[in-house]
């Protein structure tokens, strides 16, 4: 089966996020007040051929850990869906 993998990579809590901070500072100028805790990140989509969703998730997690994120400063969330 083919599974769609979605990986979200973001900075670990406590790691400074100058991009998120800049976005947060820009929001009041657009009239968005009371918005806090903006964190930036990256997202990746790809398809994996596997027997089960668990297997596909394991492949996605391995790719996220070894390449897509730098575990020293980043964390990743992996989601699996059956490809349409």
């Amino acid at each position: 089966m083919t599974f769609s993998i979605f990986v979200e990579v973001s900075l670990r809590p406590g790691i400074a996020d100058p991009e998120g901070a800049t976005i947060e500072r820009a929001l009041p100028a657009l009239g968005f007040t009371g918005v806090n805790g903006v964190r930036s990140g990256k997202a990746f989509r790809f398809e994996v051929s596997a027997q089960t969703a668990e297997e596909a998730h394991a492949v996605g997690q391995s790719i996220a850990d070894r390449l897509l994120s730098n575990p020293v400063i980043e964390q990743s969330i992996v989601r699996v869906e059956v490809a349409a």
Binding site: L11, I15, P18, E19, N70, V72, I73
Partner: peptide, 17 residues
């Protein structure tokens, strides 16, 4: 070298971008 794990830590975007 940091990405390869030969040195500790990481380099991220400059403060102030």
């Amino acid at each position: 070298l940091t990405e390869a794990g030969l040195l500790p830590g990481a380099l991220q975007k400059n403060r102030g971008l």
